[in-house]
């Protein structure tokens, strides 16, 4: 899956200034090889979510180029977006829909044919233990269940690259481990994963390659082992602290 081929995601010179003048991305360039498990780390407000949002046009970048498996994310947005699944940081489920409808309507928005959507939704409901809740309105679910519906929704159109934005924030340990298992399995099946997190042990556990983003710039990037070696660190946490620059007391 890796090396030589078209990258899953290529970002070149991406800049984004918000309306209030905040420079969120200051010329970010990044390449994620197809099939990688890629971690995007950085403190709050570093630009992680802005970067993801810019790829799917939820934020409008000032300049820069983004391609998803070679498709221009802006000029060929239909093709590009079809290949991306996003599980956002904040819960954002349609309160008028049931669990099952959330998956089916999402699949419809992505143009997935009805029969295929049904089969896929069935699999995912099963996978995330949501079968009993399929007819429940999403607004009646517990936080952990909502999170599960969000993962299932991100996957129902069979994306080639999955963006997980702080997927385990506020999630109990059990769900965290089962989620880790599942995304690892997806990755082994060839899916490219881009994970943003500020749980460093999560990045340590899952990611092959890591980029550290700070103040809207990529501060360091490499495989986990290369980074540890480069910064003379024992683990990702130490790399992080050295790069971001907060000394541990």
């Amino acid at each position: 899956m890796t090396g030589g081929g078209v990258p899953a995601l290529r970002v070149e010179g991406l800049k984004k200034t918000y309306g209030n003048g905040l420079l969120a991305l200051d010329g970010v360039s990044l390449e994620v090889e197809a099939g990688r498990f890629f971690g995007l780390l950085g403190p709050n407000g570093a630009g992680k979510t802005t970067l993801i949002n810019s790829v799917v046009s939820l934020a409008r970048p000032d300049s820069g180029k983004v391609t998803v498996f070679g498709k221009d994310a802006f000029a060929e947005y239909k093709e590009a977006r079809r290949m991306i699944g996003v599980s956002p940081q904040e819960i954002n489920l349609d309160k008028f829909l049931t669990v099952e409808e959330s998956l089916l309507y999402h699949a419809g928005y992505y143009g997935v044919e009805k029969k295929k959507a049904k089969e896929r939704a069935e699999e995912l409901l099963e996978r995330f233990a949501l079968i009993d809740k399929r007819k429940a309105r999403t607004s009646t679910l517990s936080g952990g269940m909502k999170r599960r519906v969000m993962f299932a929704r991100a996957l129902v159109h069979d994306p080639k690259v999955l963006f997980l934005d702080e997927p385990t924030a506020g999630v109990d340990v059990e769900l965290r481990y089962s989620l880790w298992r599942y995304i690892r399995e997806l990755n082994r099946g060839g899916m490219t994963i881009l994970l943003t997190t500020h749980y460093l042990e999560e990045a340590e556990e899952l990611c092959e390659e890591i980029a550290l983003i700070n103040g809207g710039r990529i501060a360091a990037q490499g495989t986990k082992d290369d980074l540890k070696e480069e910064y003379g660190a024992r683990n990702v946490e130490e790399v992080y602290l050295r790069v971001v620059g907060h000394d541990v007391a």
Binding site: L58, R81, P88, K95, H106, Y109
Partner: peptide, 18 residues
């Protein structure tokens, strides 16, 4: 307004729809 306030409009905005 509801879709925007509760941000589920994002799921539509990031879809392949124009």
């Amino acid at each position: 307004f509801d879709a925007k306030r509760e941000r589920y409009i994002d799921d539509i905005l990031i879809s392949p729809m124009s």
